[in-house]
Simulated scan of single mutants.
Amino acid sequence: MSKRRVREIPVILALFLLAATHACGYYRGNLALNRGDYREGVRLLEQAVAEHPDWANARIDLGRAYLYLGRDVEARAQLASSAALRPSEWRAIYYLAVADILDGQAAKGLARFDASVYPLELFLKKDIMYMTEALISRGLPRQEFLDAARNLLNEAERRQMMREMSSND
């Protein structure tokens, strides 16, 4: 290995550490949410947003965490901020629609999502709306509804990725 390459190693390690530190609170916050520790998730995600206010995904997940805790006003603020930072971020619009649904305004929420502009295929958008309507009709408790909505989004993202990968071939 050349001397030049050896000198680059500390710089590369420092960049890795910086990247890990940058995302640490965000990922730890999501892990807390996934295990049902919403208060810890909020604490860590609030820290991530405070350190990186322009991080749209951190704001979405903080908004989602607030929804789990019934802190709907704060959830809407984070989700609206995320949508403003990245207008093509459809998850923020979907969770705003979910907040409407949880407020008993299902028609408003579904209309919000239907009117949104985002990079999803039309078939997937209609599928998400149909599945969300099915969730609403089941009358699930708040946390079960939020879990089901999150699973719906995870599946939609997976299907979108698969479609994009197959179209690139």
Results as ranks from 00 to 15, higher is better:
69 L>R: 09
119 P>D: 04
77 A>S: 04
58 A>C: 00
50 A>V: 02
75 A>F: 02
86 R>M: 06
97 A>F: 01
101 I>W: 03
69 L>T: 11
90 W>P: 07
55 W>V: 02
90 W>G: 15
82 S>N: 04
73 V>H: 15
124 L>M: 15
129 M>R: 12
125 K>H: 11
142 R>V: 06
79 L>P: 04
57 N>M: 14
117 V>W: 08
128 I>T: 11
60 I>N: 14
135 L>Q: 07
59 R>G: 06
116 S>Q: 06
127 D>I: 02
94 Y>K: 10
134 A>R: 14
96 L>H: 00
125 K>M: 06
69 L>F: 01
123 F>S: 13
88 S>A: 13
120 L>T: 06
72 D>L: 08
88 S>V: 10
62 L>S: 05
125 K>W: 08
69 L>C: 04
73 V>K: 15
136 I>C: 04
106 A>Q: 10
134 A>S: 09
55 W>Y: 15
148 A>F: 05
142 R>E: 03
81 S>M: 11
111 A>G: 04
75 A>H: 01
103 D>G: 08
107 A>H: 12
98 V>T: 04
76 R>N: 10
101 I>T: 00
127 D>P: 11
109 G>M: 03
57 N>L: 13
126 K>W: 13
73 V>D: 00
132 T>Y: 02
58 A>K: 00
97 A>T: 04
97 A>L: 01
105 Q>Y: 01
56 A>N: 13
104 G>C: 02
